[in-house]
């Protein structure tokens, strides 16, 4: 099947800065696809190339198998939800939503009907004749979404759409966005720097770093089998084991990642079951997080972090400087590619 979106060897240079560096990517139709990375990693540039706001320096952008490199945004069948919503302040809510049909020449009555239909979908039909300035942040966000959906795009691009909302509203909207995507069955490309958001919503995630894609995978694969130290640390948190410690534990020169929750903390004299790797260290700090606590243990040069569920934790936390034994199953050590 032809992918809905395909980037082939795309680079974008701003002067000497490589915002995108030879990126290739294929997104299937109907997929909820997240572009995840820290700011300046190239994820937004990537989105803007798909939307047509910007053109690649080299490489091609294809939509549904058709090469759209150089095609202006108003001739592409994708629509965008902007980070700042970009609602037109001189138009009412319904006029904003009806903007797409209007510029396509749809009559006044018909485009109002279309707009109200989509506003119904985002539960804002009641506010249709308000001015955008009279809406709350969450409501503006919904209008922006409705406006982008009214043209029935095959692909919806979302640029950190929930970034300006507070935590509770953000979580509500995550659920709603996912529901809308599944109901309409259209492709979502979702830019975010929030790994939790990407993991909970996306079918697949591309992790960006310095203009390159580090890894494209399902959230589960990304978490369980991060390919690089960057991905391991950016998606969730991870201990990276390398150098002398790695050699002592595995006998190899490779670099490994291990999730803190995979590490068991035992007394230094407790026995370790067969098949488990272990090392000894001294307790440096314990950070309390409510349901869990994080234990930072120094092992030689490295400091490893272990997470313990509070319910399972010993009632008495050992004093700082106490000798502890860290242990984990051999298979929870994930070998990483070196870069």
């Amino acid at each position: 099947m032809t992918p809905a979106i395909e980037l082939a060897g795309v680079s974008r240079l701003f002067g000497a800065v490589r915002a995108l560096d030879d990126v290739s990517l294929a997104i299937a139709g109907g997929e909820f696809f997240a572009l995840l990375g820290p700011s300046g990693s190239g994820k937004t540039t990537c989105l803007r190339l798909i939307a047509g706001f910007d053109q690649p320096t080299t490489g091609r952008v294809m939509l549904h198998g058709e090469d759209v490199t150089g095609v202006p945004p108003f001739q592409r069948s994708v629509n965008t939800v902007f980070q700042d919503y970009a609602l037109f302040p001189h138009m009412s809510v319904v006029e904003n939503v009806a903007y797409g049909p209007m510029v396509r020449g749809v009559g006044a009555d018909e485009r109002r009907r279309l707009a109200l239909e989509v506003l119904e979908l985002v539960q804002l039909a009641a506010l249709a004749d308000r001015a955008p300035s009279q809406l709350s942040g969450g409501q503006k966000q919904r209008v922006a979404l409705a406006r982008a959906l009214v043209n029935r795009p095959q692909v919806l691009l979302l640029d950190e759409p929930l970034g300006a909302l507070d935590l509770r509203l953000r979580e509500e909207m995550q659920i709603e966005l996912k529901a809308i995507q599944q109901r309409l069955g259209i492709t979502f490309v979702y830019v975010t720097h929030d790994q939790g958001e990407a993991l909970s919503m996306a079918d697949r995630v591309a992790v960006f770093r310095d203009g390159r894609i580090e890894q494209v995978d399902t959230p589960r694969e990304l978490y369980v089998r991060p390919r690089t130290a960057f991905v391991a640390r950016f998606v969730g948190s991870a201990n990276v084991i390398e150098g002398a410690l790695a050699r002592r534990l595995t006998g190899s020169d490779r670099v490994f990642a291990i999730r803190p929750e995979m590490i068991e903390v035992r007394g230094s004299d407790e026995p370790v079951p067969g098949g488990m790797l272990s090392c000894e260290g001294t307790l440096e700090e314990v950070h309390y997080h409510g349901a869990t606590s994080r234990w930072h243990v120094r092992v030689g040069e490295a400091v490893l972090t272990a997470v313990r569920a509070e319910a399972a934790a010993a009632a008495v936390i050992p004093a700082h400087g106490a000798r502890l034994r860290l242990a984990w199953a051999r298979e929870s050590l994930v070998p990483l590619e070196e870069r």
Binding site: A51, F53, P72, P73, F74, D84, F88, P89, G100, V103
Partner: peptide, 26 residues
């Protein structure tokens, strides 16, 4: 904000339509 012009084009308005419906009123 530049995003207003981009939003307009994204929704299918060409340069002239964007000028007439978004920039001119502003």
């Amino acid at each position: 904000p530049p995003s207003w012009v981009e939003a307009s084009m994204d929704l299918g308005a060409d340069g002239l339509q964007t000028f007439r419906h978004v920039l001119l009123p502003q």
